[in-house]
């Protein structure tokens, strides 16, 4: 597939463009304090925005029930992480719960 070269070249270029967009200007660009304050909320906004739809709409179907393995697993991951501050433990435990739920309800 000769097109693969162009496919990858184009995707590489646009992806790098988004990632370097601000960082290349770090020497010359200074954000005002209000913007810096706003940007501190990027992680706590974007990560839940990635997680919540996947947990509540697995495969695109609205499923806010205790039989939904994605939802139960996500709640376990969050709870363990908050209680123990151990991210890896939270991931492993929640994955086990998720798998059990899948076996039971899927």
């Amino acid at each position: 597939m000769k097109d693969a070269l162009w496919l990858i070249a184009g995707m590489t270029a646009v992806t790098f463009l988004t990632r370097a967009s601000f960082l290349v200007f770090a020497r010359t660009l200074r954000f005002p304090p209000a913007v810096r304050r706003a940007l501190r909320y990027v992680p706590v906004a974007v990560l839940p925005a990635l997680v919540v739809p996947m947990a509540l709409l697995p495969g695109g179907a609205w499923s806010p029930t205790p039989a939904n393995p994605y939802l139960v697993g996500t709640v376990v991951a969050a709870a363990v992480a908050i209680r123990t501050k151990k991210t890896l433990l939270a991931i492993v435990l929640s994955f086990v719960v998720y798998l059990v739920w899948r076996l039971l309800f899927a």
């Binding site: 706590v44 839940p48 997680v51 996947m54 908050i82 929640s94 998720y98």
Partner: peptide
């Protein structure tokens, strides 16, 4: 599910202050 677990585990402990929680809920 692995990615879901990862993101949930890293962000949940960061939501202890009300503005962060508000940001997460609105987003």
């Amino acid at each position: 599910f692995a990615m879901l677990a990862t993101f949930a585990a890293i962000v949940a402990p960061q939501l202890k202050h009300r503005p962060s929680l508000a940001a997460a809920v609105a987003a």
